[in-house]
């Protein structure tokens, strides 16, 4: 891309600490409009904490968070209200409301739109359910009646209900079988391209990284160690990054990508 890239999430000097355990220190990160950013890191490097910090579920001890041009640390309620409708979050196991059907779950964010009549709301929910690849009959089911993969899809449908600018996905392919995981990767990629989504994706899955991510950010040593395309990651001279992108699994994922 030649033009100046539009930054939708800008983190500066984030400091997160639980008791004496410092999770993030002086962490900077930029996420550009329309890209799929994969966030990787070893267990306990605070990938999920970082996601929660951006969406406001975790207040950092220090630092600046700017999303879509709004300062979320200083802007208070007003800034949060502005961005709340413009992002969607898919939690690890979907985090669907268990007392509501899938359709009702997807309708929850749509209730924020004033004057939308119930018939249209249900039709839009059905459209979203269909777009994430669930069958019509899934809409009437309760989350407990769905498999893990279907719950994740339903969670994604809820996250996409308002056509947000940014979606946050926490381990979208964890616990899925390889075929289901590959289908989910394709789904994320296709949706992000046709809807112009910016995707912030926390993952452990190398296949997902190779298949869908435009850029990768590696969390290590309490900050974003490096960020760049996956090809650039291969050239980074850091033991953890090197092991991660040159291990047997990474090679397998790379070969798999070459074949498709």
């Amino acid at each position: 891309m030649t033009e100046e890239r539009d930054v939708v999430i800008r983190l500066r000097g984030i400091h997160n600490q639980f008791g004496r355990q410092v999770v993030h220190h002086d962490l900077d990160l930029d996420v550009y409009r329309g890209e799929i950013l994969g966030v990787v890191g070893g267990s306990g490097t605070g990938k999920s904490v970082l996601l929660k910090t951006i969406v406001g579920l975790q207040t950092p001890q220090a630092g600046e968070i700017e999303v879509l041009g709004y300062d979320l640390r200083r802007g208070g309620e007003e800034a949060r209200d502005k961005v709340d409708d413009r992002w969607g979050v898919m939690f690890q196991d979907g985090a669907l409301f268990s007392s509501l059907t899938v359709r009702e779950n997807v309708e929850v964010p749509l209730k924020h739109v004033p004057d939308l009549d119930p018939g249209t709301r249900a039709a839009l929910a059905d459209l979203k359910i269909s777009m994430v690849g669930l069958s019509w009959s899934a809409g009437d089911k309760y989350p407990s009646e769905l498999s893990g993969g279907m719950r994740k899809r339903a969670g994604l449908a809820r996250a996409l209900a308002l056509d947000p600018d940014i979606v946050f996905l926490d381990e979208p392919t964890a616990g899925l079988d390889p075929i289901g995981a590959a289908a989910f990767d394709q789904l994320i990629h296709g949706l992000s391209r046709s809807l112009g989504l910016t995707v912030f994706l926390v993952t452990h899955d190398l296949d997902t990284l190779y298949a869908v991510c435009d850029r990768v950010a590696v969390l290590a040593e309490q900050r974003v160690l490096v960020s760049g395309t996956i090809e650039e990651m291969g050239r980074v001279d850091h033991p953890w990054v090197h092991d991660y992108f040159h291990g047997p699994r990474a090679r397998a994922a790379l070969t798999a990508k070459g074949e498709t």
Partner: peptide
């Protein structure tokens, strides 16, 4: 182009109701 791509995708995804159970 991106608008017509979106419209095509939505058109492809319009759900058809199953037979009532």
């Amino acid at each position: 182009p991106h608008l017509s791509a979106l419209m095509r995708r939505v058109d492809a995804a319009i759900p058809t109701p199953d037979l009532p159970e």
